[in-house]
Amino acid sequence: MTTDPHVPHFQEELDQLKTRLLTMGGLAEDRVRIAVLALVEGDHAAVERVLTGDEAINQLHIEIDDRCVKLLALHQPMAVDLRAIVSAVKINSDLERVGDLAVNIAEAASRYFTHPPVKPLIDIPRMALIAQEMLHDALDAYVRRDVSTASGVLDRDDELDALKTLVFKELLGYMQRDKATVAASLDLILISRHLERIGDHATNIAEDVIFMVSARDVRHKLEE
């Protein structure tokens, strides 16, 4: 078998798709990071930036889908190329949702600032850290086509779920003892829920990476 030194334009377009998807991933990561930091540091201006800055992600969302549809229609890709494009469509949706969740976190944070703090924030920043690491690792696995990093992301989802349950129980206790904490506690519960959902999207991305690289469908623990 000979390797053609000339890179076919289909391959170039696949590379461009990957680059655009990574730009999208970077934006989504960024917005989650700013939303969480804004919450922890009580930074109103940062909250505002997240609330008003969704446009770039939304535009990329459409652009990437458009690229995928054109690649499918014009090149009718097979095998690994087909899996790469189908995965890109799905990862694109997950990243757009992550962007929306960052907005949801910022909205809850801006409401939370209007109440006296319920408690020092400990578990929510921990959740935020895990969710961001999962997202980062999932995107890293995508870049490097690395199944083992992707599998690592799947393993961390339970950790995040457990923390969410812990946060919920703790805040329920506060609300039962003191009704004045209900509004603020509900916002924190919502934030923990949004962070847990970010972890779910990172998990989806990791599953898509495994499908893209090895053609294995590991969703819903199909392989067990």
Partner: peptide, 18 residues
Amino acid sequence: MFTSPAEKLTEDYITGRF
């Protein structure tokens, strides 16, 4: 065969890599 061929050679052929 067209989504996940078992052989690398098949994959290279159907994806136009040779």
